[in-house]
């Protein structure tokens, strides 16, 4: 028995493209990317945290205001790809009004669910940039 690759003529052409969901740039992702909610530095805030993804150059700053243990304001600004900006936009909508205990229970899985698209390995950091920034804030509260 011959072990190894079949001859080139019988081999399937490898799929060059990453394992990507064709629906990556879905309507709601594009909407949040082109018109991000809660975008821009707020006049007042209690905490400011900046994160970056050095691989692709994405930068994101998250501004949170607290009322006791509850997030009373969440805004962000930055420069990034459609996925990281959409994730920032959706996250700031989601966390407003939540208390710190609830936020600490959030997982990366919640972010993927929120985005509603399949995230490939190469886009994980983009999808989780805003979330990672939030985690950094929560770690010291």
């Amino acid at each position: 028995m011959r072990i190894g690759l079949p001859p080139a003529s019988k081999r399937q052409k490898p799929r060059f493209a990453h394992n990507m969901d064709e629906e990556l740039y879905k309507e709601n992702i594009l909407d949040h990317y082109r018109h991000p909610r809660n975008f821009g530095k707020p006049e007042t805030y209690d905490v400011r945290e900046k994160s970056s993804n050095p691989l692709c150059g994405d930068e994101l700053t998250l501004y949170l205001a607290f009322d006791g243990e509850t997030v009373s304001g969440a805004r962000f600004e930055g420069d990034g790809c459609a996925i990281s900006i959409a994730a920032g936009s959706m996250l700031t909508e989601k966390i407003k009004g939540k208390d710190i205990g609830e936020l600490k229970l959030m997982t990366p899985g919640d972010i993927y669910t929120m985005l509603g698209i399949k995230i490939s390995h190469t886009r994980e950091k983009c999808a989780l940039l805003a979330y990672a920034t939030l985690i950094n804030i929560l770690a010291v509260r």
């Binding site: 060059f16 493209a17 990507m20 692709c56 420069d79 990034g80 790809c81 459609a82 996925i83």
Partner: peptide, 13 residues
């Protein structure tokens, strides 16, 4: 964004 450009181009091989 460049990351999106690279991703969409990669679908076009």
């Amino acid at each position: 964004h460049p990351h999106d450009a690279a991703e969409i181009l990669s679908r076009e091989n």
